[in-house]
Nucleic acid binder design. Structure first.
Lengths: 295, 295
DNA sequence: TTAACCCATTAATTATATTCATGAGTTGTA
DNA sequence: TACAACTCATGAATATAATTAATGGGTTAA
């Protein structure tokens, strides 16, 4: 009844704006599209668009099918790529989603040996998700999610892969550089630099500043770790980052790590997959290697 | 490339067990199916099954496409129903998912006036989800989720619709019946009756017994509220339920409600929808009515 | 060994999709 | 207001694709 080409046509009309333009980009005639949709309309008993002057406007049914198209077509298109890879003897593509900015460095340490051990598997890393990491897992947009926020939900399996301590990165000659630990009120005197994510997801707010009722003097956001630490090294601000990340950069830059609070902020990174994928060997192997990576 | 009929054929072969049987139930000849799949195989460059004696066994590519079929076909089939309803002038079907056993009674109070006010909209209630309520929302299996556990995630919107107190239902002649409130150790002497859900989701465990390090003498599970309260009335056990539910049944049964702990257990029920549905009028109207329902 | 299954294949047929040619409506402009 | 340039819809002709019919070869179990 509703076929793939119907959905393709609707999507193309939406993006190209007209039947004629859609027809051209699909290498068909305008007439073909018109006929195809006309037939569908007869089957379902309602129009999918109405002519409004020179333009087309989707009816409710058309709008609904368009949203269906935008949901299903990417899945079909991805499936074709996967099948093609299987045909070539490749095992597939591991699509990794990252909800943890600084984990990128860690991920590289897992991916490198993984690619060696699984030459048939390609790895793709995505960082932006329309419906968040969980939605991307459910929607088969990614296969593995790297996140500090696991979610015990049916259909998904999360597993911790490593523990680390979140510390404050400060410039070498910063007054805080030689402290054993810092207190919230001390950070409140500083310019805080973070990745550009929602404040709720920043532990230095959640677990450190806000409980003590403090706010940083100023809050700046920077996308990349390198630039962020350049700023810190230049004494232009402080940043909360994983201890291992700071330690790594401390070799090449004049920065120091200071504990956040007397006990420090303990964190864990989790990998999440769909339960139905637990049996997929090359996926399980990735989890296995992730667990074993040394620090 | 991969068309709907390919997926249909794969699914039918899986359920019926053979090409011939699948052909019959699709009102096609065995030959047609064979040709169709053969062509697909040529396009994608790999076999989808291999003959193993008299039976067929799916190859990895076939298995993959089968899982695709089982994910996508239900969505297409649902879309057809929706479009048909739109064509008939109906607005659609509101598919409500319940993750909150006792809320059923509350739901009925919302649904009744809603159906009157929206004669074009049908309501369907589902209680079991393969991947949980969140997964069902993401997977377009349901449109509204009724749950005590909201989840602030991109793509989903949750809203509290009512507050209530969770109380202990006891038989009228039970020694606890006249207490102002009960302590964990007192419940630990009782047979506790609950709905058959995971213990993590039972507040009487999470928020009452476990923090005080107690366990009930015995734990029984019963599916239906009526039977559960019959048991309570007969003095065969106690149950933790919403106060309004116990109050309602107290009219017709010899049961009483007792507060759990000095301060009681406060609870909230949330309705969750997909963010993309916030503009759907008949859906927004449901939330609106749900918010306004009186107790 | 045979009957009863199974699936694959070729050639013939039927059904379906697409094009071609055209018309009717809209828009902007001369 | 007339016209050119654009839009989409339509009917008939054509090309393409799906389906069947007929058949053969392989497997299974009695």
């Amino acid at each position: 009844m509703i076929e793939r080409n119907h959905l393709v046509i609707l999507r193309e009309i939406e993006t190209k704006g007209s039947l004629t333009a859609a027809a051209e980009s699909l290498y068909l005639t305008q007439s073909a599209l018109s006929h195809t949709i006309k037939k569908l309309q007869q089957q379902i008993g309602t129009a999918l668009w109405i002519k409004e002057g020179r333009r087309l406007r989707f009816t409710p049914a058309g709008t609904y099918l368009l949203s269906l198209a935008q949901r299903l077509l990417p899945q079909l298109e991805h499936a074709e790529k996967v099948v093609e890879q299987i045909a070539r003897g490749h095992r597939g593509t591991l699509r990794i989603g990252m909800e943890c900015h600084p984990c990128y460095q860690w991920l590289l340490k897992v991916v490198a040996p993984y690619l060696e051990q699984w030459p048939d598997v390609d790895v793709d890393v995505k960082q932006k998700f329309q419906f968040g990491g969980i939605g991307a897992l459910f929607g088969h947009e990614i296969d593995i999610l790297v996140t500090p926020d696991p979610l015990i939900k049916p259909g998904l399996v999360f597993e911790p892969v490593f523990d680390y301590e979140q510390v404050l990165a400060v410039g070498e000659r910063h007054p805080l550089a030689d402290m054993t630990y810092v207190k919230p009120r001390q950070v409140a005197e500083e310019v805080l630099i973070t990745y550009p994510v929602a404040i709720e997801r920043l532990d230095i707010y959640n677990q450190f500043l806000l409980p003590a009722n403090y706010n940083p003097k100023k809050h700046k956001t920077i996308e990349t770790t390198d630039i962020m630490l350049q700023m810190v090294a230049a004494g232009r601000g402080v940043a909360a980052l994983p201890h291992w990340l700071v330690a790594e950069y401390a070799d090449k830059m004049p920065i120091r790590a200071v504990r956040l609070g007397e006990k420090g902020i303990a964190k864990q990174i989790f990998l999440g997959i769909r339960e139905s994928d637990t049996g997929t060997d090359y996926l399980a192997a990735f989890l296995d290697m992730a667990r074993r990576v040394d620090w």
